Simulated assay, not measured.
Amino acid sequence: MGVRVTGGGRMNPREEVLDVSLFWRVFLLNAAVLTGATALLVLSPATVSTPVLPAEGLILVAGLAAMLVANALLLRIGFLPLRRLTRAMTTIDLLRPGMRPPVSGHGGIADLIMAFNSMLDRLEFERATSNARALSAQEAERRRIARELHDEVGQSLTAVLLELRRVADHAPETVSAELHDVQETTRDSLDEIRRIARRLRPGVLEELGLASALKSLAGEGHGVSTGCRIEGELPELGEEIELVIYRVAQESITNAVRHAESTRINVLVRSDAAKVRLRVRDDGVGIGDAPEGAGIRGMRERALLAGAALAVDPGPEGGTEVRLDVPITNGSER
């Protein structure tokens, strides 16, 4: 029996040691059972006749059953760390970093678990790096689209609105009323474009900071009652960290409005010497047993960029509570 850490190709010395170690582990376990059974037969007064008597056959069957049970128990105990490793392999989620199976067992088994943990370290680092590049490109595209909406579409609609006003001033009264309705429709469209541009590129975050941006986000209406409370003075976290907090709050509010049938949303931000805590609670239907959607997984990916811990759980009074804890370190400050 052999277990290899990597795929095809020739085994390196470490793989050969692991393979041999597992072979001898199984061999010695089986040898211990057979040696014990042989010693028992030698020391036992029982004999086997030809033909085998019923009583002797019963003894042989009981001895075989005892050997099989002892062998199964020893193998189960010996390979228990491998079962833990298998369970960890099926439950590990790279969006929840830090989960590692404990290193236990002897020889090759401990080496296998350490190799798996090292692989997880590399995968988490590579995923975080690639996510950082992807989210950075996404934010750049958001800024470009917001700028085009504001500078091109917004200005075009503003020009249309001014022209409609000029035409309405010189049009007959019956036509003027219809032009007024068109003006209102155009004005509503212009306001909606500006709201979309603000969601894509939160200019208030760059100009006034995180606290003002969150209050502005809560004050946009969203069709439900939304409140925002800031406790304590927020430290300087850096543009990327502040953007992570803002986007998580934005996505939490959007999910509560679109999917949770909420009537009330509360945003709370609290800061202390160790971390900044964001809490978004709603009174909606809750998440239940539904699998996590793209919105929540996107929040987890953003949380990884800030080295933050994200939890999405049922609220203390129903609904859903999103918790984001961002550690304050020297590297997060501007």
Results as ranks from 00 to 15, higher is better:
residue 153 V to G: 05
residue 299 M to A: 10
residue 91 T to A: 15
residue 51 P to D: 04
residue 86 T to W: 07
residue 249 A to I: 06
residue 110 A to M: 08
residue 16 E to L: 14
residue 168 A to G: 10
residue 312 V to T: 15
residue 217 L to E: 00
residue 250 Q to G: 04
residue 272 D to L: 11
residue 228 C to E: 02
residue 49 S to F: 06
residue 73 L to M: 13
residue 237 L to M: 15
residue 160 V to R: 09
residue 178 E to P: 06
residue 17 V to F: 13
residue 111 D to N: 00
residue 131 N to Y: 09
residue 254 T to E: 15
residue 155 Q to Y: 09
residue 281 R to M: 00
residue 116 F to H: 12
residue 225 S to Y: 08
residue 102 P to C: 09
residue 6 T to Y: 13
residue 163 E to N: 09
residue 149 L to G: 00
residue 284 G to S: 13
residue 296 I to F: 05
residue 295 G to I: 03
residue 219 G to K: 03
residue 114 M to L: 14
residue 100 R to E: 11
residue 174 T to V: 13
residue 151 D to G: 09
residue 134 A to L: 13
residue 142 R to V: 07
residue 47 T to L: 03
residue 269 V to S: 02
residue 149 L to A: 05
residue 286 G to L: 09
residue 292 E to Q: 14
residue 106 H to Q: 11
residue 49 S to N: 12
residue 5 V to G: 04
residue 102 P to Q: 12
residue 199 R to Y: 06
residue 246 Y to D: 01
residue 157 L to G: 04
residue 288 G to H: 10
residue 14 R to V: 14
residue 278 L to G: 06
residue 262 S to K: 05
residue 105 G to V: 04
residue 315 G to V: 05
residue 161 L to I: 15
residue 35 T to L: 12
residue 24 W to L: 07
residue 30 N to G: 01
residue 309 A to F: 07
residue 203 G to D: 15
residue 169 D to M: 14
residue 324 L to K: 04
residue 217 L to R: 06
residue 249 A to E: 02
residue 216 S to W: 03
residue 233 E to N: 12
residue 187 R to L: 14
residue 140 A to P: 01
residue 26 V to L: 11
residue 252 S to M: 09
residue 188 D to K: 11
residue 298 G to M: 13
residue 21 S to Q: 07
residue 313 D to W: 01
residue 99 M to Q: 14
residue 88 A to V: 01
residue 85 L to K: 04
residue 301 E to T: 08
residue 164 L to M: 14
residue 230 I to W: 02
residue 102 P to D: 13
residue 80 L to Q: 11
residue 281 R to E: 11
residue 279 R to E: 15
residue 223 G to D: 10
residue 70 A to N: 02
residue 159 A to S: 14
residue 331 G to F: 10
residue 211 A to F: 01
residue 113 I to Q: 05
residue 47 T to V: 10
residue 281 R to N: 09
residue 187 R to G: 05
residue 327 P to K: 08
residue 70 A to T: 09
residue 77 I to M: 08
residue 156 S to N: 09
residue 260 A to D: 14
residue 140 A to V: 07
residue 111 D to T: 14
residue 206 E to F: 11
residue 306 A to K: 05
residue 331 G to T: 09
residue 194 R to P: 06
residue 168 A to P: 03
residue 328 I to V: 15
residue 295 G to K: 03
residue 85 L to H: 01
residue 68 L to E: 05
residue 299 M to T: 06
residue 181 D to V: 13
residue 325 D to P: 02
residue 316 P to A: 15
residue 150 H to E: 14
residue 259 H to I: 02
residue 226 T to R: 02
residue 127 R to H: 10
residue 276 V to D: 04
residue 72 A to E: 10
residue 187 R to S: 12
residue 325 D to H: 08
residue 247 R to C: 00
residue 226 T to F: 00
residue 29 L to G: 00
residue 210 L to E: 01
residue 18 L to G: 02
residue 123 L to Y: 13
residue 172 P to Q: 10
residue 252 S to Q: 09
residue 264 R to W: 08
residue 257 V to F: 06
residue 173 E to T: 14
residue 71 N to G: 08
residue 264 R to D: 14
residue 165 R to V: 10
residue 106 H to A: 14
residue 264 R to A: 10
residue 329 T to E: 09
residue 144 R to W: 07
residue 101 P to K: 07
residue 192 E to T: 14
residue 213 A to P: 04
residue 16 E to G: 00
residue 180 H to F: 08
residue 299 M to Y: 04
residue 325 D to K: 03
